[in-house]
């Protein structure tokens, strides 16, 4: 999601910085994608694969520039993973939690069992503490159908209502774009996205 949003902002030729704050499951981070994204014109704050070399367990590591990301000009996207501490990860970026400009969006995939029901999503988002909106990213990878995305949206919208939060948008991958006109995905906006993460496997 973060990668897509960053690339989207880049198209309006803004200066965009993407920051890797995904610690607990760090495999799924931007490291592998860094060279490609930088070629696109994005500034990526994350350890590259080569920098991580020799760092053994290569688990949670913050790069010094990540701490001061909010000081940069242009658009800033913070890719925050989950963890027992929820959105407290934002504490690690100076000025993030207090920032009024910063929007914290929780990306929900109803295909993940822990956020597949309205109740679970509500509990999960409340556990994160600071959240400004939900994004419906319900998908099953290559097996995603437009119906699945729409079913996910229904669940996310119900949860959003209880939480009194907006649904910012629904993500639909490029492969399903042809089916959009007949799909029932209103009224929140729909964004067509590409899945980069398989390349970011490690």
């Amino acid at each position: 999601m973060a990668v897509n949003r960053a690339l989207e902002l880049l198209r309006s030729s803004k200066k965009v910085t993407l920051v890797d704050l995904d610690f607990v499951e760090p495999f799924y981070t931007l490291r592998g994608l860094k060279p490609f994204l930088q070629e696109q014109g994005l500034t990526v704050i994350a350890w590259g694969r080569e920098d991580s070399f020799g760092l053994g367990e290569t688990g949670s590591l913050v790069t010094p520039p990540a701490r001061w990301a909010m000081w940069r000009s242009g658009d800033i996207i913070l890719d925050v993973g989950y963890g027992a501490h929820g959105a407290a990860s934002l504490n690690l970026v100076e000025g993030a939690l207090e920032s009024e400009e910063l929007k914290v969006w929780a990306v929900i995939n109803t295909a993940r069992p822990m956020t597949s029901t309205v109740g679970d999503i509500v509990d999960y988002v409340q556990g994160l503490q600071r959240v400004d909106g939900l994004i419906n990213n319900s998908h099953l990878g290559d097996l995603t159908t437009i119906e699945f995305v729409a079913e996910g949206l229904l669940i996310v919208r119900k949860a959003a209502k209880i939480l009194n939060l907006p649904v910012i948008y629904t993500a639909v991958e490029k492969r399903l774009e042809p089916e959009l006109p007949v799909a029932d995905l209103g009224p929140s906006p729909v964004k067509v996205i590409s899945r980069y993460m398989p390349a970011a496997r490690w």
């Binding site: 610690f23 949670s60 913050v62 501490h85 504490n91 690690l92 100076e94």
Partner: peptide, 9 residues
């Protein structure tokens, strides 16, 4: 360990 404590300075 601010990273894992998720704490600011």
């Amino acid at each position: 360990c601010p990273t894992n404590w998720r704490t600011n300075a």
